[in-house]
Design a protein around this nucleic acid. Structure first.
Length: 390
RNA sequence: CGGGGUGUAGCGCAGCUUGGUUUAGCGCGCCUGCUUUGGGAGCAGGAGGUCGGCGGUUCGAAUCCGCCCACCCCGACCA
């Protein structure tokens, strides 16, 4: 992508609405814009990160045998009456009406819908265990939205729901999800602490929270980015999800549910990966892997070299952003630090004249000068290292 | 919902106390031209505002009064 064609609206100073670092940086680096309190547009740059995080989640969930599906956001209130959660204050539900006046819940979570589905479709112990997940927008009528994507009325969540034949099997699923979550957060570049938690509105038995350590955050100096619950038979009983066991006896599915706040995870990543100049994306979730920065775009030699490198990297499927804007070098350097692409290739007029350029790591500031024909192998090994560090 | 605070150009603010030389300013950003080009350049010119909204007081309101709305922070609640 060429920066001159991309929509990356960076700003020098953070608007006063933002207090915490991640919120400020997301505004400044052109990731989000506010529509209204607790409602944000994810700009193209942010959407790339959302996709990266989503792909890591999909990879780890699929490894554990979970299957992705997508359920409706609008849900009939009758289903929520069945589970007894229609008037749950904790879930802070938003509702919507159709033109006949029928009321729907704008889903804050999907236990009811998935249990209804499984109850209708799965009838035999032979079809269990099952684990379904989805990544979609959730709604909570937050009393007080705050801190950008940290607590929004509308946010992106990965939620999954497991169905097992008994507690023992459900326990294994629970442990598997815990390990999947550890891998997911680690691959996202997050330092996580797992703590025992109160199941709250979900009900059921055991629960653990995944806390990203940060000096802001709402509990224990950390940000809750995920939570897992063993639900027992609470929903299979109220909604009706049973199966026949080996002996032909009807039994209730033993359930678990597992959530990750995707957009909040991105806030947490920034809280843990930034410095005074801007974001320092872990390579695994960075919107681009490499930024090419020709210091002076009107110098034809460095422009030519930058274009050449840009093409080479694109051919190798490296996600590369070329800062081809006709602005002064200082502006580009500041923006480069702000948006936090992990590897920067600087093309300066002097060195370009002798066919050399610089590779710089955003996180460490480490910089090497290489000849253009040595660039690709050097860059590939730098990317490898970055990958292992995050 | 309780408490605190803020609304003046895209962003950051001054002006309000004491109403009238304010045709409402300043910095950044934006547009045009020239110069400049390794860490947010310089000069010149320019565009951009129902002063959050409605009502009231007054000869006259960004400024005083009332109501409403929006937004931010603390609390209760949550991925």
């Amino acid at each position: 992508m060429r920066w001159s064609k991309a929509f990356i609206p960076t700003i020098k100073e953070a608007p006063v609405e933002a207090e915490i670092t991640s919120h400020k940086l997301m505004l400044r680096a052109g990731l989000i814009r506010r529509l209204s309190s607790g409602l944000y547009t994810y700009l193209p740059f942010c959407l790339r990160v959302i996709k990266k995080v989503g792909d890591i989640i999909r990879d780890e969930m699929n490894k554990k045998g979970a299957e992705e599906l997508l359920m409706p956001i609008l849900q009939p209130t009758e289903l929520w009456e069945k589970s007894g959660r229609l008037n749950s204050k904790e879930l802070a539900m938003l509702t919507a009406k159709d033109r006949t006046g029928r009321e729907f819940v704008l889903s804050p979570t999907h236990e009811e819908v998935i249990t209804d589905l499984v109850g209708r479709e799965i009838k035999s112990y032979r079809d269990l265990p099952k684990n379904f997940y989805q990544i979609q927008t959730k709604f909570r009528d937050e009393l007080r939205p705050r801190s950008g994507l940290m607590r929004a009325k509308e946010f992106i969540m990965k939620d999954s729901y497991s169905f097992d034949v008994d507690e023992e099997s459900a326990g294994k699923t629970y442990a598997m999800m815990e390990s999947a979550y550890r891998s997911i957060f680690s691959r996202c570049g997050l330092n996580i602490q797992v703590v025992k938690a109160d199941p709250g509105a979900m009900g059921g038995g055991m629960s653990h929270e995944f806390i990203a350590l940060a000096d802001i955050g709402e509990e224990e100096n950390g940000i809750e980015v995920g939570q897992i619950f063993s639900l027992g038979t609470k929903y299979s009983k109220s909604i009706g999800a049973t199966f026949l066991d080996k002996n032909g006896v009807e039994k209730l599915c033993v359930m678990g549910c597992f959530g990750i706040g995707v957009t909040r995870t991105i806030s947490a990543i920034i809280e843990q990966n930034h410095d005074e100049y801007g974001i320092m994306w872990p390579l695994s979730v960075s919107p681009y892997q490499v930024l090419i920065l020709p210091v002076n775009i009107s110098d034809s030699v460095s422009r030519g070299l930058a274009e050449k490198v840009y093409n080479q990297l694109q051919e190798r499927k490296v996600e590369v952003l070329l800062d081809d804007r006709d602005v002064r070098g200082g502006v580009k350097f500041k923006d480069a630090d702000l948006i936090g692409v992990p590897v920067r290739i600087t093309v300066g007029s002097e060195k370009a004249a002798s066919g050399a350029l610089e590779i710089r790591e955003r996180r460490t500031g480490r910089e090497v000068t290489v000849r253009a024909d040595e660039l690709i192998p050097n860059l590939m090994s730098t990317l490898q290292e970055e990958n292992h560090e995050s």
